[in-house]
Amino acid sequence: MQTELRAISTLPAWLPEAVRLYLDHTEEGLSLRALARREGCHASTVMRHVRRCESRRDDPLVDEALAALGRAQGRGHSPATKDSPDMTAPIRPEPSLSAMLDEATIAREARRILRRLAEPQSVLAIAPDMEKAAVLRSLPDGSTARMAVVERSVAQAFALKDWIACRKPGRIATYEITAAGRSALKRLIEAEDATRHGMAEAATPFAGQHRDWAEREIRDEDGPRRVRYNAAESPVAVLGRRRDKDGKPFLSAELVEAAERLREDFELAQMGPRVAQNWDRFLTGADRGSFRPESGGAEGPRQARERVASALRDLGPGLGDMVLRCCCFLEGLEAAERRMGWSARSGKIVLRIALQRLRRHYDETYGRSRPLIG
């Protein structure tokens, strides 16, 4: 028990769990079964983590970081230094990761460095005799520009977290941002923005990494306004994953497909110089009869505009408003309920009824085969 407590207390809190298990096994000598009992998992799970960390020691930054953390635990018999004489001094003293870094420092540096690495043709370069790593970017004229520098210990932490990966080992090793690094960058930016503006997304930072926020200008009875929406996912797709009390999807696949058909036509119809159009006019009595492009309508593919106008006229006010806001403008259900003056949690019921009517409109007008684009 004392050995396990000492292993936990000497490791920094930001270390990934797999790295922590690897160090406890290799440096502290804890068996895989003992670690499995401590973590409440199977021994094979611990073994997979340990083997993966061992295979990553070919990465120079990962190997340096694990060696430094091993010395911090008081043993220092890492594979990188086991063959070195005891009296040989290191060429460059390696700082202790646990003493220099904390969660706030790593997050601050990640927002700065990962943002640069996410740019095209950018890599992080480091050599054994360099105290700091440099972010380099290849320019169109063939030259290379240094975009940022970062402490070696911070780069080691990025490698341990699998935010960067070695793509070209050698005298000067180069690293690229990984998919996990891009997700972490989005998560950190979302958390920072939510903290600055006091938004609700601060409570769900991991969900923020899958969002792609954008803004669109729409016009209604109150005049033009800008709407912030998640371009990566629509409210209909979110409802399509929910299930009712019987375990059935709240929206069937046919209803989700109908919503995507309307959104596709809506996006096609907005191609052209005027992107922000007043689509609410299709829901008013004056424009429900016919659609005349020469009367100031939207520019773009005429067939897509006519399909959207026909669908909205068929749905009429109320149902048409709901699909327009949720399927086309990608407004959330709560925002749509407030704009329409409805009670809370009524929007999803109205949206399902509207999509059922929209599905019938498509079946009666075009049949099961959707019209071809163009």
Rank of each mutant, 00 (worst) to 15 (best):
T3M: 09
I8R: 15
S9A: 15
L11D: 01
E17Q: 14
Y22S: 15
L23V: 05
D24K: 10
L30T: 05
L32G: 04
L35W: 06
L35C: 07
L35A: 09
H49Q: 12
R52N: 09
E54A: 13
S55L: 09
D63L: 13
L69S: 00
L69W: 00
R71P: 00
A72P: 00
P93C: 04
P93A: 08
S96E: 10
M100L: 15
T105A: 09
R108N: 08
R116S: 14
S122M: 11
S122H: 13
L124S: 02
A125M: 08
A127I: 05
P128V: 05
D129I: 06
D129Y: 03
M130C: 06
L136N: 04
T144H: 10
V154H: 02
V154A: 03
Q156I: 04
A159T: 07
L160W: 02
I177D: 01
T178Y: 09
A180F: 01
A184D: 01
K186Q: 13
L188C: 05
I189R: 14
E190N: 15
E192L: 03
A194I: 01
R196V: 14
A202T: 06
P205Y: 01
P205D: 04
H210R: 15
E215N: 10
E217S: 14
E217I: 15
R219A: 04
Y229H: 11
E233W: 08
S234T: 15
P235T: 06
A237R: 03
A237I: 02
R242F: 11
K245P: 01
K245D: 13
S252V: 10
E254M: 13
E254C: 13
V256A: 12
E264N: 11
F266L: 00
L268F: 01
Q277K: 04
F282L: 06
T284H: 06
G285D: 11
A286G: 07
D287K: 08
R288M: 09
S295E: 11
A298K: 06
R302Q: 12
E306F: 02
A309G: 08
S310C: 07
A311N: 05
R313E: 08
G318A: 07
G320H: 00
G320C: 01
M322Q: 00
C326S: 09
C327Q: 00
C327R: 00
L330E: 03
E337G: 03
E337A: 07
E337M: 03
I349K: 14
L351N: 00
Q356T: 08
Q356I: 03
H361R: 05
E364F: 05
Y366D: 08
G367T: 05
R368Q: 13
L372Y: 04
